[in-house]
């Protein structure tokens, strides 16, 4: 395990007009751990994700992925560096199939140029076939809930829970160095949530590094290695899950409002 942090965020700041949405936030994520960002609604969690993934530009601060500075890059550039994310509301391609989603996840690694693709060169075709074979493997993460025979189904035909699973599968297909999961269990019932958290823990055990957002602390208590608490854009606590859960400022943030 290297000394270098997988993700190092320093002084991340974003203003929207007069509102300071994210205020000099620092985040460390080590290799192979799950860090959860918690906080009440409006505390700046998703904005933080958007800043890290490049969807919006920070006003100040740095975001380093294994030492490499990412702040200011476009989302597609950042995804090619190896950061995959899911969204709070599933952002799927409704009219595309499950398989397409996985292939799109793998896309950044594809090499073929436009002309090569147009001419359907053998190298291009080989790359395609390998990708499709790999897709089935990625999907197997979810076992019998989202099985390979659903590859040809349109995303819009999937149940809500399966859509969320597809979101995560697509992110996994990227073979990311860092996985950003934005409230992955939102809208799921307790059983599904527990199931999902088990799978996320399994991903960590399998070698992934995960940064998770959740507003319900109970959900992430068991699966997180460390927890960071935000309120009104500021970091108010950090540490082991139980410590943060009991921290007075955190309790106040959730009860106070």
């Amino acid at each position: 395990m290297s000394d270098q942090l997988r993700l190092q965020v320093r002084g991340l700041t974003k203003r929207f007009g007069g509102l300071l949405a994210v205020n000099a936030v620092d985040i460390d994520v080590r290799d192979n751990e799950i860090v959860s960002i918690i906080g009440p609604n409006g505390s700046g969690k998703t904005t933080t994700f958007n800043l890290i993934s490049g969807a919006i530009r920070p006003d100040a601060g740095s975001v380093r992925l294994e030492g490499e500075e990412l702040a200011g890059l476009r989302p597609d550039q950042i995804s090619r560096k190896g950061i995959a994310r899911t969204f709070q509301m599933p952002e799927l391609f409704m009219t595309l199939t499950v398989l397409d989603h996985l292939l799109i996840g793998m896309q950044g690694r594809m090499r073929a140029g436009l002309l090569a693709s147009a001419l359907s060169l053998p190298s291009t075709r080989r790359e395609e076939r390998a990708a499709r074979a790999e897709a089935a493997d990625v999907l197997s993460t979810f076992g019998d809930r989202l099985t390979a025979d659903r590859m040809g189904d349109l995303a819009r035909s999937l149940s809500y829970a399966n859509r969320r699973r597809l979101e995560i599968s697509r992110a996994l297909a990227l073979r990311p160095r860092l996985l950003l999961l934005d409230e992955p269990a939102a809208g799921m019932n307790p059983r599904e949530t527990q199931d999902l958290m088990g799978i996320i823990g399994g991903l960590r055990d399998g070698g992934h590094t995960i940064l998770l957002i959740e507003h319900d602390m109970g959900v992430v208590l068991n699966v997180s290695d460390r927890v960071i608490a935000l309120d009104h854009g500021e970091k108010i606590a950090e540490g082991l899950p139980r410590e943060v859960a009991a921290h007075p400022r955190v309790v106040e943030a959730y009860l106070g409002g």
């Binding site: 597609d76 995804s79 799927l92 391609f93 409704m94 009219t95 397409d100 799109i104 697509r170």
Partner: peptide, 15 residues
């Protein structure tokens, strides 16, 4: 296809 269907998600995955 991805760009056409959901530009935001497509961009997050390398488009």
């Amino acid at each position: 296809n991805g760009m056409r269907t959901n530009a935001r998600a497509a961009e997050a995955f390398g488009a």
